[in-house]
Amino acid sequence: MKAPVSEQRSLLELQAADNRLAQLGHRAKTLPQQKRLDELAALAGAVSRTFATVRGELEDAQLEISRVESDVQVVATRLSRDRERLEVSSSTKDIQALEHEIVSLEKRRSDLEDIELAVMERTDEISGRLQVVESELGALAAERDELLVSRDAELAEINSERRGVQVNRDLIAGGVGDELLALYDRQRARYGIGAALLTRGISMGSNVKLHESDLAKIRLAEPDDVVLDPDSSCILVRTEESGL
């Protein structure tokens, strides 16, 4: 293939633009903010599961308190009824039965009040743990919000530069013939680099000094001949500093 020397040299600018686009793309994908955001998402998921578990404990404890309070109310109602009956009863047998039941009910109420106190203390302890977990979630959310702002600002900067580089790249590509451009794009897609400078006998595509036999072949090529690097397969762009 043949192509004007000026077009071949334009490939170096094209490659520089593509390199910068690749760098910007890699930077956008590997932002430290995003890495931390991913970590925070995992942390928040774990803390949210803990929150759900602790909240379930609290709801169970609160339900238990409600049941105990209901039982206490039932006992209190029966005590009130038995005491009223005791005041009006004239039967020794009924009086003894009522007094015995009152003693049992008072014991039952005392036991229930002890249980209620224990459950209330446990509820307070669970509430404290729940507040700690809520604080952790709040701290994670605050850090996440700060990181989102920072990440989006950096992404906007990257995308702005990327658009500028792309415009420049399109302008450069517009000055390159279709056949040469197609070869450049093909080699870049296959091998990661489309064109590189040959300087002092060293290919900047492979960073390797070419063998003398390869250099001899290149010396025989016409200036407008398109030469490929025998190592990296990219287009070798020759200039005055190529050492030929």
Rank of each mutant, 00 (worst) to 15 (best):
L244P: 02
R169V: 12
A196P: 01
S70M: 06
E64I: 11
V47A: 11
E125M: 13
L12T: 02
A182T: 13
L24C: 06
T239L: 06
L40I: 15
Q131V: 13
D38W: 00
L215F: 04
L244K: 04
T123L: 02
Q23N: 15
E136I: 07
P32S: 07
P223I: 02
I235N: 01
L63Y: 04
V176E: 03
L180C: 05
D124I: 06
G138N: 12
L183S: 07
V119L: 13
S232E: 01
K217V: 08
G177T: 05
A153K: 15
S66W: 10
R144P: 05
L11P: 04
P223Y: 01
L112M: 07
R78I: 14
V88G: 04
L117E: 09
A139T: 12
K2V: 08
D214I: 04
A28N: 08
L137Q: 08
R163T: 14
A3M: 02
L181M: 11
Q62E: 06
D152K: 13
R129E: 10
D170V: 15
A141S: 15
F51T: 12
G138K: 12
R163P: 03
I65F: 04
I172N: 04
A142R: 12
S110E: 08
E101Y: 07
T53F: 11
E222G: 10
S6G: 14
E7W: 08
Y191E: 02
N19Q: 14
S48F: 04
K93N: 08
I115K: 14
L171M: 10
L130E: 05
S70L: 06
R85L: 15
R122I: 00
A142F: 07
R36I: 12
G128D: 09
L40T: 02
R9H: 08
Q131H: 05
T199S: 13
E64R: 15
E146F: 03
I202A: 01
R9P: 03
R163A: 06
P4C: 02
Q187L: 14
S213N: 10
I193V: 15
V227W: 00
L197G: 00
R9V: 13
S160C: 13
E154I: 09
A61W: 06
E106V: 01
F51L: 09
E125V: 10
E179Q: 10
A41Q: 07
D185L: 03
R238K: 13
R188Q: 05
R144W: 10
V88W: 11
L105R: 01
R151C: 07
E212K: 15
H100Q: 14
A142E: 13
K217H: 05
V226N: 01
A189W: 07
V54Y: 09
Q62I: 06
E106L: 00
K107L: 08
L40P: 05
K35Q: 14
E69I: 04
